[in-house]
Design a protein around this nucleic acid. Structure first.
Length: 591
RNA sequence: AGGGCUGUCGUUCAAUUGGCAGGACGGCGGAUUCUGGUUCCGUUGAUCAAGGUUCGAGUCCUUGCAGCCCUGCCA
């Protein structure tokens, strides 16, 4: 393998191209430092996974670092439950952060930076009401008008801001604003709010503060303090970038005037020593993930949870990390998905089929195989002795013998899948029909001799005879058998509950709905199917919760992490079905 | 004339920065198979539009068109 060092590398996403360029020009001396900055106001979902894989992946690929930083500047929306779940999900996905910071950990420094902005004449306290501010902001085509408080003296602003902090003022009395340009075409620059009064208990700082910094003020400055080089966020923040730059640049300008810090020399020294102020961070935006058939907005996900459409954040139908985990998706499959979808700037919606492909591919390699009957019907082998039991040894994985094997008992009465029998089978149906010979997986060839029905016409029993010469599921004469079926010995099988999940929504795009409807009107009440009368082979009895496996011919499953109890109550979640070409044929024949 | 961003197979991401538009998923067809699974092979199919520059344009220029974001004291 010869690597041409200066051969242009193809297929890199635009962010990596930017980093390559920065490395060439020596912008950060080859340093790459990213961060994943969630607000702890909800659980992580697959859209966050894209951002996580990007930010942590960059750190990995460029020998850099990636911080976890909770963007916790709005105490009324945030909670420790969410920070705990975010940390757990991140670890489960397989990523290790270099440092775990909190925006709230910077409240002190941010406060003094705000004072600095005031001293620089770059910020002022505005006593207009929220409504007045909105009214004076202007419109898309017309400039805003200056606040009557815009020209207060520095000392006046300083006194007022300190009063805000002191806690004497009620919420909404006044606000600290950046003094930029009320006529800017970009609204973000029309004197944006920097600090607001909120008498609210913060999940980390308690009641230390009654003023909290706004996102734009906090984010860029936090990046700078941490020495972030590439601050990657989603497209809707493109308009915020000039404000991001204004905050960082204003601080850097302020740091060149140490005298402004006055009695706060300590803070100055701390700030000036941070790496980010010699090599400032820049913000880059990429398109957030959309997937067909689901919603990926925290607001909508929280609504599904709170209004009881799902059982919780980890309901296996949820596109949350915890939902996918409980459903049986592996971290590897999610990471693979995130790599395949790419990173770009155009809004796009990825087909859910790609995610399914990723799990199937991963699970095909790693999931041990078992037999289980979902919709059982009795199969009686009439020429098989009542008291006889065969024990067949079957490999746990067809392509990897390191998985070992397990013993599967066989007896006269078996459970088979109702859908594997047809009274009037068409030619393309390879399974059981009267007079047809099929293979019972790893056991015997059997020939159907007849079936019984009850008064309602339901098939109650299927009868067959077996060929003792085909023990193990093959014959010396090499006769061709088209169909192979799974089975479970009725005497030895264990009853289990199986939960089949399908799309939560009845529409491909729950984000755009008919007039007068909302996305919850498209929740599919049948998206969870609970099967309580399933029969599985005895080897499954002691399976640990969270274990992935395959029911041959049916799909990939995972022992539920909440309700499955080894040895007593078996509960299996269907991760996804196997690809089913018979279903396709049926569909074609139905047309 | 508000500002910002984006338009490439059905979907998604590429195209050595002006040099034969490629891969993945999906679809279709076939081979193999003790899972109608897996694997393997083949196939389908795209540069938003119109002009211009050029030997040569997805890429550069001009003019349109379409979509997304921006008037929170949310992030």
């Amino acid at each position: 393998m010869s690597n041409k060092v200066d051969a242009p590398e193809k297929g890199k996403d635009f962010i990596r191209q930017i980093i390559d360029k920065d490395n060439e020009t020596g912008k950060y001396q080859g340093r790459v430092h990213t961060r994943f900055p969630p607000e702890p106001n909800g659980y992580l979902h697959i859209g966050h996974a894209k951002s996580i894989c990007l930010n942590f992946g960059l750190a990995r690929d460029y020998n850099g670092k990636c911080n976890l930083r909770f963007d916790d500047t709005n105490p009324v929306k945030e909670d420790v439950e969410y920070v705990d779940s975010i940390r757990e999900d991140l670890r489960w996905l397989g990523f290790k952060w270099d440092d775990n910071f909190y925006a709230s950990g910077y409240f002190d420094k941010l406060y003094y930076i705000a004072e600095l902005f005031i001293k620089m004449g770059k910020a002022y306290v505005d006593h207009q009401s929220a409504d007045e501010i909105r009214g004076n902001r202007g419109t898309l085509k017309e400039p805003g008008t200056n606040s009557p408080y815009r020209d207060r003296t520095i000392q006046e602003n300083l006194d007022l801001f300190r009063a805000m902090r002191a806690g004497d003022l009620e919420d909404g009395t006044c606000i600290l604003r950046g003094k930029i340009d009320m006529a800017a075409a970009n609204f973000m620059l029309r004197d944006p709010a920097l600090y607001r009064i909120k008498h609210a208990e913060h999940h980390r700082t308690g009641d230390t503060w009654c003023i909290y910094p706004m996102y734009d003020f906090t984010h860029g400055l936090s990046d700078a303090m941490e020495g972030i080089t590439h601050s990657i966020c989603t497209l809707e923040f493109e308009n915020n970038r000039p404000l991001y730059d204004w905050c960082v640049n204003t601080l850097m300008e302020g740091l060149r005037q140490p005298e402004l810090f006055g009695e706060n020399a300590t803070i100055y020294n701390e700030l000036a020593a941070l790496p980010g102020f010699n090599e400032r961070p820049y913000q880059y935006e990429f398109a957030r993930l959309n997937i067909t058939g689901t919603v990926l907005s925290k607001r909508k996900l929280i609504q599904l949870v709170q209004e009881g459409y799902v059982s919780g954040w980890d309901d296996p139908r949820m596109p949350t990390i915890s939902g996918f985990r409980r459903r049986g998706y592996t971290p590897e499959s999610i990471r693979d998905f995130c790599e395949r979808i790419g990173v770009a700037k155009s809004n796009s919606t990825v087909e859910f089929a790609l995610l399914e492909h990723c799990v199937r591919q991963d699970l095909n390699e790693r999931a041990p195989r078992y037999l289980g009957v979902m919709d059982p019907v009795k199969l009686v082998i009439e020429n098989y002795p009542e008291d006889q039991v065969d024990e067949f040894t079957m490999p746990l994985h067809p392509e990897d013998e390191s998985y070992g094997e397990r013993a599967v008992p066989f007896s006269r009465e078996l459970w088979m899948e109702r859908a594997d029998f047809m009274e009037d089978p068409p030619k393309k149906f390879f399974r059981m029909g009267v007079g047809r010979e099929v293979r019972l997986r790893s056991a015997y060839y059997v020939t159907c001799t007849g079936f019984d029905k009850d008064a309602d016409g339901n098939i109650t029993k299927i009868r067959a005879t077996y060929d003792p010469e085909t023990k193990g599921g093959w014959s010396k004469d090499g006769r061709k058998i088209k169909g192979t079926m799974h089975w479970v010995s009725a005497r030895h099988g264990i009853q289990a509950e199986i939960r089949n999940y399908s799309n939560l929504f009845t529409t491909e795009n729950p984000n755009s709905v008919e007039e007068g409807k909302t996305f919850v009107d498209y929740v599919d009440p049948d998206s969870l199917e609970v099967l309580t009368n399933c029969w599985v082979e005895p080897a499954l009895a002691d399976m640990e919760p969270g274990t992935n496996f395959q029911f041959e011919r049916t799909g990939y499953f995972c022992a539920d992490t909440r309700d499955h109890q080894p040895g007593s109550k078996l509960v299996f979640n269907r991760t996804t079905t196997l690809r089913d070409s018979w279903a396709k044929i049926q569909k074609q024949m139905g047309k």
